[in-house]
Design a protein around this nucleic acid. Structure first.
Length: 883
RNA sequence: GCCCGGGUGGCGGAAUUGGUAGACGCGCUGGAUUCAAAAUCCAGUGAUAGCAAUAUCGUGCGGGUUCGAUUCCCGCCCCGGGUACCA
């Protein structure tokens, strides 16, 4: 009875397709369950084994939930705009649409061979004009929305109150005023530019080392007119929204850090010889007594006014040098502080003393006010700077808990102390402020209210989150529905969407940051009814645009009248479970939440957050091999003998290590090959059996053989009518079956697929050992196997004479009465060490339990004549004798 | 530097309201089957000592709490991820 997966699997895949088994009806009478995969970018390389990991997990849950009576929405689509197709077009002249179509077809074919239960009638593609019509539509909504801080929500731009003084200035000023409030705006921006990709990229797309996350090339700064989105307006909402989400804490932390909320105060320092004061932002207004100098960033707007004549030349030189430095030089490696004294002094408002104002590039213009008060005694950066330039260091926090040596140094201004301490030197007769003896919280509160009374400061909140750079110099992306008119007006087109891409033959980007669309001929030019000429926006949207909202389109993918039917949205949203890689922790997931909140405020969607529960699958790595000296050896040159590894040519013994799959190591696993050799069910099972879903783990072909063995044994046993008998089921089998039903179900609910499979294996082992089971048992086994190995399960189900698919058979309910025990085999320990076991009735009174244990012959041995001090008896758990 | 996550057999990994450490699978060893091999089946398999029954040790390291700690607390070490002049 051979396990012919090569026949079984295509047969059932064809059955599901022909019968539209997984078509999802909009059946409002059933409870819904929306389970979503992060849709892939269909690359030319096809699926790798990382894709099916998440897809199998969601498929198992989908199949399980259907059996539990839910109406399950489980769709798939393509995030198909993107660079590779465009680069291929530049090289070969093949239109990106052609390449994309081919790749999508290949991905779909591959995914179908895995037996995943998607509703293919809901397939979407971000490059389809019928799809990106609505991406553009959302862009127009962003453009026409402003954030009302009083109500804490986005509102239509028409509801924006215009102040009288603005109105008085005329239409142009009103327009400008409105433009400054829109969530999408077009402006000069200092942007990250990747010379390799010839495009700009968002802050979030630049890695820590200053390289572009797409290609690894170092990015540079450039000034360009670009579209930006005012995501910081939603910073507070995005932060608060995280609290109620069932997401991995790590991802929430990453988003929190990225949003970077800090609470502090803005303080105005009077500047000697100027009427204008210098405003700084600080999180520690209570350390004002220790502020011995100030720093403004080289880009600060007041810099010119601050610099005294004799310092002009020096400061100018310094600022120019700073502007030429890349941000990388300014932050990453250049730990050595640099700066120049402006020659000007400010007055410390709490001490009334003079403090010098410096310019230094360790202060960034983009955060706070671009100027700081420096407290060198208690801030590492300020301390380094003050030491280098011999600026006074005043200790105002006594490190009471530190060791004596450190404490003395800190008090003397010879060391920096950044922890808490007791205020010293924190009072002034001149200004009357005194915070000595207060706690940190009280100190901050007292100084802040003192500043507020004097009208020179106020409590302020700051966020690290910056405007989102939203345009790219690419061809293969959503065109902006935007026209730049010859008279300088910019309009956003709201009717006649979509704006489609022009057909082109050359896709090279222009020099100096011009999109390929700048050469688009007729497409470029527009004339309005008054004869005014305009030029279409030539930048396109970033790849994130299409993925920001795709989960909404699955709900009603063919609707040409609306983005979706609100009734359907109301039923299906939010996404109940979203599974994908952790690499999207801040990018896609933050952008998506932002758009969703705007759409929520505008009443387009019914939920404030799109994804109720999020889960990250771990990365799949592969084994690689290296010599004793650490030289890597490609996998085709490795031989395994008796569990050890040798170089096929030199015979040298090799070490097995774990590494990312890579072409250079020749250790890439192609799912097609696995399906060919072991079948889709084996691939699915192994992907889940490897370990916890969220762990990073290495692929091992022997592991695939292991689960393949399980499927073969299960098939050999359960598909053979000789093993399926009538009559009463064996008690042991019956009992284990109930336990397995519970275990497999619970493990699916908790995404612990590896142990669920283990339970199925244990049951299979027992059935084989017994040699026979009843038909009822066999059918139950097929049912609980189905989410994991659906092809084999359907096969068995039909062998038992069922004519319909088991995809909608109810999940079995365990008969818990069969699991009730009347006795328990207790482990008996002496001083915590397990020594022997004893079977005792559950209803035995405590004193009799103790008696039975102590009378046991082995107990005499361990007691060794002594009287036990105490006997711990935990019913149904253990017995511990303390001697 | 800071913030997360993690260290358990030869390997992937089980087990946490504190209660038999090592489920399940791989690998390995022995046996059955075979002319032989593959495949399959059966048995064994944490380390050390012992013919064995059995004993001692054992969940990164060092302490602590407890009748009892992989699990809780304190202090370290190592690995992975994120982030970094954000005032």
């Amino acid at each position: 009875m051979e396990y012919k997966f090569g026949e079984i699997e295509p047969k059932w895949q064809a059955y599901w397709e022909e019968n539209k088994t997984f078509k999802t009806p909009n059946d409002f009478t059933k409870p819904k369950y929306y389970i979503l995969d992060m849709f892939p970018y269909p690359s030319g390389a096809g699926l790798h084994v990382g894709h099916p990991e998440g897809y199998t997990a969601t498929d198992i849950i989908s199949r399980y939930k259907r059996m539990k009576g839910f109406n399950v929405l489980h769709p798939m689509g393509w995030d198909a705009f993107g660079l590779p197709a465009e680069q291929y077009a530049i090289q070969t002249g093949t239109h990106p649409a052609v390449t994309t179509q081919k790749n999508c077809d290949n991905f779909r074919r591959q995914i179908k061979t895995l037996g995943l239960s998607y509703d293919w009638d809901r397939e979407i593609n971000t490059t389809d004009p019928k799809y990106f019509k609505w991406t553009q539509w959302i862009f127009t909504k962003l453009y026409n929305t402003w954030f009302d801080y009083e109500q804490g929500k986005g509102r239509p731009i028409g509801e924006l109150p215009i102040p009288e003084e603005v109105k008085a200035e005329g239409d142009a000023t009103v327009k400008e005023y409105i433009g400054k409030k829109r969530l999408a705006y077009y402006d000069d921006a200092q942007v990250w530019w990747c010379e390799n990709c010839k495009t700009v990229c968002a802050n979030e797309e630049v890695l820590t080392d200053g390289s572009h996350e797409k290609c690894g090339n170092k990015v540079i700064r450039k000034n360009l007119k670009q579209w930006l989105l005012r995501i910081p307006h939603y910073a507070q909402r995005l932060l608060e929204g995280l609290d109620d989400l069932d997401w991995p804490e790590g991802v929430k932390d990453m988003q929190k850090n990225w949003i970077g909320k800090s609470i502090g105060a803005e303080v105005d320092f009077a500047v000697e010889g100027l009427t204008e004061s210098l405003r700084v932002y600080t999180t520690r207004p209570d350390t004002l007594f220790g502020a011995t100098y100030m720093v403004v960033s080289p880009e600060h707007s007041m810099l010119d006014a601050l610099v005294v004549d004799e310092k002009k030349e020096e400061v100018k030189k310094y600022s120019q040098a700073a502007s030429l430095k890349s941000d990388l030089d300014r932050t990453e490696l250049a730990k050595e502080k640099t700066g120049v004294f402006t020659g000007r002094y400010a007055i410390n408002p709490v001490t009334g003393t003079q403090v010098p104002i410096w310019v230094a590039d360790y202060v960034l213009m983009g955060y706070g006010t671009g100027a700081i008060m420096a407290v060198p005694a208690h801030d590492t950066r300020d301390f380094e700077f003050a030491e280098k330039f011999d600026i006074p260091i005043t200790c105002i926090l006594d490190p009471k808990d530190a060791d004596e040596e450190t404490r003395e140094k800190v008090l003397a201004g010879k060391a920096c102390w950044t922890e808490d301490g007791a205020y010293v030197n924190s009072s002034s007769d001149k200004t009357g402020l005194d915070i000595n003896g207060l706690s940190k919280t009280d100190g901050i509160a007292k100084v802040t209210s003192w500043l507020e009374e004097k009208g020179i400061g106020s409590a302020t909140t700051n966020f690290k989150l910056r405007d989102w750079l939203f345009s790219r110099q690419r061809y293969w992306g959503e065109p902006f529905p935007v026209i730049h008119w010859e008279d300088g007006e910019v309009t956003v087109v709201e009717d006649d969407l979509p704006v489609t891409l022009p057909d082109m033959e050359k896709f090279e980007p222009g020099d100096g940051g011009e999109s390929p669309l700048a050469n688009a001929g007729d497409w470029l030019t527009v004339v309005d009814k008054n004869g005014r000429k305009g030029r279409r926006e030539t930048n396109t949207m970033p790849q994130w645009a299409g993925s920001c909202w795709y989960f909404l389109r699955y709900i009603d993918p063919k609707n040409d009248e609306q983005i979706f039917d609100p009734k359907l949205e109301n039923y299906w949203m939010p996404v109940d479970l979203y599974i994908g890689g952790a690499e999207h922790a801040v990018l896609h997931l933050l952008y998506s939440r932002f758009w969703h909140k705007v759409l929520f405020d505008l009443g387009v969607v019914s939920t404030d957050e799109p994804f109720k529960k999020l889960f990250n699958q771990g990365m799949i790595l592969a084994f690689a091999y290296e010599t004793q000296t650490g030289a890597k050896v490609t996998s085709d040159l490795v031989e395994e003998k008796e569990g050890q590894y040798f170089h096929a040519e030199t015979g040298e013994e090799l070490r097995q290590i774990v590494a990312k799959m890579s072409k250079s190591l020749k250790n890439v696993i192609n799912p097609d090959d696995v399906v060919e050799k072991y079948g889709a069910d084996a691939l699915r099972l192994y992907e889940m059996f490897m370990g916890p879903l969220d762990d990073t783990k290495p692929w091992a072909e022997n592991g695939v053989k292991g689960v393949f063995g399980f499927l073969s044994r299960a098939h050999r046993f359960f598909a053979n009518p000789d093993h399926i008998v009538d009559g009463e089921e064996d008690n042991e089998v019956l009992k284990l079956l109930q336990q397995t039903i519970i275990k497999v179900g619970d493990d699916i609910e908790n995404l612990k697929f590896n142990t669920g499979i283990s339970a199925l294996m244990v049951f299979n082992n027992l059935a084989i050992k017994k040699g026979k089971v009843t038909k009822a048992t066999a059918e139950t086994f097929a049912t609980i196997l189905a989410p994991y190995a659906p092809h084999l399960a359907e096969e068995l189900w039909s062998i038992y004479g069922n004519e319909k698919t088991l995809a909608y058979e109810p999940w079995p309910v365990a008969d818990e009465s069969l699991l009730v025990e009347d006795s328990h085999e207790y482990p008996v320990s002496f001083n915590g060490k397990m020594r022997f076991k004893i079977e005792l009735p559950l209803d035995m009174p405590r004193n009799e339990v103790e008696k039975s244990v102590l009378e046991h012959e082995l107990a005499q041995k361990w007691l060794d004549g002594k009287t036990p001090k105490k006997v711990i008896y935990v019913p149904q758990k253990i017995i511990n004798v303390v001697i």
